[in-house]
């Protein structure tokens, strides 16, 4: 009996001491999970990377490439941007980057007065180099150091060539564009037209959707009403693709139409896979991110100056629907 009591007391005591020490250990454990000391040396260049539609798959890939390269090149990459396409917010981001005295800005080009003013005057006065990525702006107006992205002109040519191959050398082609003129859109258009000029049987129709000068075509449905015979559509501004397909589907089958777009459209690949569109111009977003950071680093290190003012072009290729038409 005495033994049992002693044993029980010993067990209870052991348990209590164990628990007490356990609790004490948890309380007096001094290792707080404080953020680590800044490892980055202050002389590492800080580069701001600014874009619209941060969550867009295209841009996600660009950022992935940029961050990868930043890691290699030893650049502090500060990716900022906006969700959506609000121009004022976008410009505000650029302005903040300039006032924050970053060492360089890589930015999606915006063909707008304020953008040009910011890059030309403000960035220059703060001595901040600017590289445009994916979408360019005219080099004389922005004082950008260089452009990294697809050669939009040749991409337009590629697409036009594909169209001729698919449709044959005659017919009407509607080129859908945003009413607000954008430089990259213009480049693509130039490319397409340049190619189609060689085929006199092809008639091109430029449709600036939402433009004041052309009030009949305020929406895609108007477009279809207006040109009921046309079978070929090229979304020079990729954003119209989804709407176009939806609109056509409400009237007839999509199959007979020749629909082409660029990979900036979120749904482009899904549409291609389901056979609703006929081709996509695929760009190399990861390459763009990579090369833009690399070039910026070279500029900052004064290694490869001056950079090629015309730009560094990344690959573009036509992706065709695998399913037979």
């Amino acid at each position: 009996m005495r033994k049992i009591v002693a044993l029980m007391a010993a067990g209870l005591g052991g348990f209590l001491f164990y628990s007490t020490f356990q609790a004490a250990g948890a309380v007096f454990y001094t290792n707080w999970h404080l953020p680590a000391e800044s490892k980055e040396s202050p002389d590492r260049p800080r580069v701001a990377f600014i874009m619209n539609e941060m969550d867009h798959p295209f841009w996600v890939e660009v950022i992935a490439g940029a961050e990868e390269q930043a890691e290699i090149a030893g650049v502090d990459l500060d990716v900022t941007g906006i969700y959506g396409t609000n121009r004022d917010d976008f410009l505000r981001k650029i302005e903040i980057a300039i006032y924050s005295k970053v060492d360089g800005i890589i930015v999606q080009g915006l063909d707008h007065e304020k953008f040009k003013e910011l890059t030309k005057l403000k960035a220059a006065s703060y001595g901040i180099p600017i590289i445009t990525v994916a979408h360019d702006v005219p080099k004389e107006e922005s004082l950008r150091k260089t452009y990294v992205g697809s050669n939009q002109f040749s991409a337009g040519e590629q697409l036009a060539a594909q169209l001729i191959e698919d449709m044959g050398p005659e017919g009407e082609v509607v080129l859908m564009m945003n009413a607000e003129q954008e430089y990259f859109q213009q480049q693509r258009l130039d490319g397409i037209k340049n190619y189609l000029n060689g085929h006199s049987e092809i008639e091109t129709i430029e449709a600036k959707i939402g433009a004041d000068s052309n009030p009949d075509i305020s929406a895609i449905s108007d477009l279809l009403n207006y040109y009921p015979e046309t079978e070929a559509y090229i979304a020079v501004n990729a954003a119209f693709t989804q709407n176009l397909v939806t609109e056509i589907e409400t009237r007839s089958k999509v199959d007979p139409y020749y629909l082409y777009t660029f990979d900036e459209e979120r749904e482009a690949y899904a549409l291609l896979e389901s056979g609703k569109i006929d081709g996509i111009v695929e760009q190399s977003p990861q390459e763009m991110g990579k090369i833009s950071v690399q070039r910026m680093k070279e500029w900052l290190d004064k290694e490869n100056v001056p950079l090629d003012i015309e730009g560094y072009f990344t690959e573009t290729r036509i992706i065709k629907d695998a399913a037979p038409q």
Binding site: E37, S38, Y99, S100
Partner: peptide, 20 residues
């Protein structure tokens, strides 16, 4: 106050005040 997490934001913040 600079640390690994807030380095870029803090630098921006500070540089903005310098610009100001």
């Amino acid at each position: 106050f600079r640390n690994a997490e807030n380095a870029s934001e803090l630098t921006n913040y500070m540089n903005l005040t310098v610009s100001l």
